[in-house]
Simulated assay, not measured.
Amino acid sequence: MQYEVKALSPENEIIALVVDAQDEAGARAQVEAQGLYPTRLAPVRTFRRASGSHGRISVVLFSQELLALLMAGLSIVEGLEALLEREGGARLRGILERLLGGLREGKRFSNLLSGQPDVFPPLYVGIVRASEGTSDLPRALQRYVDYQARIDMVRNKLVSAAIYPSILLVVGGGVSAFLIAFVVPRFAAVYEGTGHPLPWMSQVLLDWGKFAAAHGLPLFVGALCVVIVAGMAARAAITKIGFATLLGRVPLLGPHLRIYQLSRLYLTLGMLLDGGIPIIAAMETAGGTLTPAMRERMIRACAAVQSGQSLSAAFQAQELTTPISLRMLRVGERSGEMCAMLTQSAAFYDGEISRWIDRFTRMFEPLLMSAIGIVVGTIVVLLYMPIFDLAESLS
């Protein structure tokens, strides 16, 4: 593991460096051996889920590359050596070197992965550990890649559905702000010279426009402060209860977020069981992918299964099923095809979520466009109403 270190030199200068050590104590010892006094040590997070940044790749991309090399006939050591020769990033090279060093010492690959929890999640370690019993690492890697692709498909669809409304809100808000802060004050200057009484709503709009033009900077700073405070409050709430839990409290999103969580649970559990992991260990690992509230239910369901209860009955008691998935679980228990039933249940949930996203976007986007059009149109009409009144009086 790598650590970012800030240390004080004998010349009383602050020095920033990165050291490679097994734990924080080892990193501190390395720094002190150089005659420096460490003031701050923090582990470096090397892999991210996004795979577009320089020197960093996702675990999925790492698995895909290693899988391709293994399928080509290379051993795992040769595959990691090939990845190391190609890699130019210092952080990833450090990870690969530690994996290679451990394998050459005779350590198990899963133990080496679990020694870097900031890089490889427990789910990934679990399926690799299960594959070591069957000597089928390529299938385990392929299973994880397929699993992550299913998860990312739903997530990407949610993100794509949110992009267009976000653009509409930004553009609509920008046009409205431009009209009020720039166009309305100029119309107000023209109408003031006529001496003609203005409609009440037009007068209110013009007064707001003049106020915005006269106090533009304080209003901008105030709006920026409101955004910052709201962002900090949202971040504190996310840190305290989690982003998924926060979204789950939204009336329209709560039930569908529960379906998404159930889909992820069933897909994860099916993949782990298919990889040969025992049911209790699979349930404990799958529980780590859920929100805190559903994780507590999963823990109770796991305890019920340990006491001899069936999986379907335990899930039903903890409200971790829907009527359709409950029947599919019972069929899987009778037929012995629990992995297939879990995977099919997850696919059914994914289809339900996709249909809801499509319906929601078809309904929400026109409504949002209509609302923005009404706001902008109202501003324009109120600006021109005095001109219409003046034309009528002249005629």
Rank of each mutant, 00 (worst) to 15 (best):
K6E: 12
N12W: 14
I15R: 08
A21R: 01
Q22P: 02
Q34P: 02
V44T: 15
H54V: 10
S58M: 10
V59W: 00
V60E: 06
L61N: 09
L67P: 00
L67E: 11
A68W: 00
L69G: 06
R98H: 12
L112I: 15
G115P: 01
G115Q: 15
P117H: 14
A130P: 00
A130R: 00
T134Y: 03
D136H: 05
A140F: 01
Q142G: 03
D146W: 09
I151R: 03
I151H: 01
D152L: 10
R155G: 04
K157F: 05
V159N: 05
S160N: 09
A162R: 07
I167Y: 05
L168V: 14
I180P: 00
F182M: 08
V183T: 11
F187Q: 05
E192A: 14
G195N: 04
P197A: 14
M201P: 03
L205I: 10
H215N: 13
L217I: 15
P218S: 12
P218V: 15
L219S: 01
L219M: 14
F220I: 15
F220P: 01
G222L: 15
V229L: 13
M232Q: 09
A237N: 08
K240M: 10
I241E: 09
R249C: 15
H256M: 14
R258Q: 10
S263H: 07
L267R: 14
M271D: 02
L273N: 00
P278I: 11
I280E: 14
A281R: 07
M283C: 10
G288S: 06
G288W: 02
P292F: 11
M294F: 13
M298C: 10
A313E: 15
A314I: 13
L326F: 12
L329F: 09
E337N: 11
M341I: 06
A347T: 14
F348R: 01
R355L: 12
R355P: 04
W356C: 11
W356N: 08
W356I: 07
I357E: 02
D358C: 08
F360Q: 02
T361S: 11
I379V: 15
V380T: 13
F388R: 12
L394K: 08
